[in-house]
Write a protein that binds this DNA or RNA. Sequence first.
RNA 1: GCCGAUGUAGUUCAGUGGCAGAACAUUCCCUUGGUAAGGGAAAGGUCGAGGGUUCGAUUCUCUCCAUCGGCUCCA
Length: 575
Amino acid sequence: MNKDIEIIRHSLAHILAIAVKEMYDDVKLGVGPAIENGFYYDFDFGNAQIALDDLPKIEKKMKEIVKRKIAFEKIDLPKEEARKVFANEKYKLELIDELVDGEITGYQTGEFIDLCKGPHVDNTGEINIDGFTLIRTSGAYWRGSEKNKMLARIYGVAFATKEELEKYLEMMKEAEKRDHKKLGKELDLFSFHPEAPGSVYWHPKGMILWDCLEKFGQLIRKEHGYIKIKTPQMAKNSLWITSGHWDHYKEDMFVFDVDKETYCLKPMDCPFNIQIFQTKQRSYRDLPIRYTEIGHVMRNEKSGQLNGMFRVREITQDDSHVFLREDQIEKEISSLIEMVQEYYSALNIVPNFFLSTRPDDFMGEIETWDKAEQDLKNVLKQNGISDYGLKEKDGAFYGPKIDINISDALGRSWQVATIQLDFQLPGKFGCEYIDEAGERKVPVMLHAAIFGSFERMIGILIEHCAGALPLWMSPVQIRVVPVSENQIDYAKEVADGLKDFRIEIDMDSQTIGKKIREAEMQKIPYILVVGEKEKGNKTISVRKRGQQELGEMKIEEFIKILEENKSADKLINKL
RNA sequence: GCCGAUGUAGUUCAGUGGCAGAACAUUCCCUUGGUAAGGGAAAGGUCGAGGGUUCGAUUCUCUCCAUCGGCUCCA
């Protein structure tokens, strides 16, 4: 973030607080930082409510304050002094109590003083009155904890100039057009229905996309030595008590009674994979054993956090579980990172790596966790990934993980792939193998999903390409458009010659312009126009998605173009 | 789950305390066309669900459901 604009954003948060204080009685202040593209401020309005409709008034007041050209003055506040100044601000007092003398500073603007480290602009006059706007309100828990009171957060966006602001707002409007929920409907890929909140209904075209992803994933896994399995959808709670999910994950599980016993829909596949491992006596020579499973798991996500395909209750994971010896850990994790990189480069997506560390609610010994975290750090380094982010306390209850995040059209970051190192569950279940010396040993377990879930990954993919999927994944790859009904027979002949592709014929008795428009809006990669001319010459006129005509050519020539496109996609030859 | 917004035809959206509207899509008719919308007609609705206020509610009000933007939580 540009330093100057960050100061402006921070100052605007301060000005927002002034405006709200002037307009509403008995408002208590929370905090108000600069954020990417703007700023926010949290307020406790007491019994009053703040709604979207109130924002224009507040924004007007902010602009008025900017025009007053008042100075921001930094003041040092000894703790006792600060307690006096903010005597009426319970949230500020809470923050002051955690600071020590000398650390506490405030910024005074006219009558108003805010508790703040700064920096701020010297004078409100430095702020461009047309460079910012308030965009939305939301609730936000005080200090980010669900246990605390929910404050009213007001968000604004701010830039140095009016033009930059307008450009940003325009960009966000464009981004909304790439929303996978909207495109999924328009392209007839999937739907949602109120009777099954958080579950996806896959339409025929969406299913083709799904199959392409699945096949490609399995191909990569096969090359890395994985074998497919399939496990149950539900199990008695005794299994989940053993695994620890009952203690650590119960809130998110669907639980129900059958014949006086308690059952759970599976929220994860791991315990079942462990049970398969245990059906035989395993030797050190057998390891690593690499299972992969298309896991259909169900998690009771809270209603308010469901979000299109990004956050569903029925999640289909490209799951894998590896049982291995300690000396195999680094090599195996490297292999998983390699798989992630192969997969994402084929999808033209750059993965962002994160290390997620021990959560508060962890299972096992701290020393084991420290070792596991160190192992993951080593492997990341060995694979040339040094710029990974840190997600503190974000590991699974059974082990730390390497996560891969991808942004959606609106710039929100979603976790997709995950590689988890687990020293806990195999022991919990009493897994063993016989080592070289004939001793019983507990294997280590890796949990990994390469693209995370079909739902989330497909949502992300759609948004990344605005629905214009690469040829190999397009549900319909080619549409033949006859100029008039007189060429329908020839169109069928053309389609027959391209049987290896997903091809369809537009039989509508509409103008050619209309039919082209339809095909373009459906984001079909190739449109083949056939009229009297083509019929006579035994050719086709090719139009590529989003471009002009490629010209008239023989079908064989067109197939050559398709093949080149395929090899450009690298992986298509494998499908 | 919490804060806020939204819910009207298959879709995108207008609108109103007193007979429910458009465009696109659908069906039919005319048109037989040359690279992003040819013309016409018909059909299409328990205005998210249930209470309340009212002579009368799609409209006001309450509860619930669903969706979206955040918060929290997670692939």
